[in-house]
């Protein structure tokens, strides 16, 4: 299954990955290979099989509603590129 070059660009944009124009063709081949594999799996007869949401056949464990975390802001913010007034600072986001 072949993708169009603009579809590759769209996927790259959605993942916020900068892809140079020269890389698109090679990426197209790789992505198309993955889609081919998925397409081939689609040929299997899966009627009567319950779709799986997770490879582990176990239910989700629940946690009691209790506050267990303390404030470690200083430690957590030590790795942030920019902070101020207790906030993480990021390049301006315009709504």
């Amino acid at each position: 299954m072949d993708l169009e070059p603009d579809e590759v660009e769209k996927i790259a944009h959605l993942a916020r990955i900068a892809v140079a124009a020269g890389e698109i063709e090679a990426l197209n081949t790789e992505l198309s290979g993955i889609l081919d594999l998925v397409e081939r799996m689609g040929e299997l007869d899966t009627s009567g099989i319950t779709p799986m949401a997770h490879p582990l056949d176990m239910p989700q464990r629940l946690r009691p509603d209790v506050v267990t975390e303390e404030n470690h802001r200083e430690a957590y913010q030590a790795v942030a590129p920019a902070i101020g007034n207790g906030l993480y600072l990021v390049p301006r986001v315009i709504e």
């Binding site: 101020g84 007034n85 906030l87 993480y88 600072l89 990021v90 301006r92 986001v93």
Partner: peptide
Amino acid sequence: KSLHEDFHGMTGIDL
């Protein structure tokens, strides 16, 4: 929450 008040041209994030 994003706080768009002036932080020297940056946006403040409170998580």
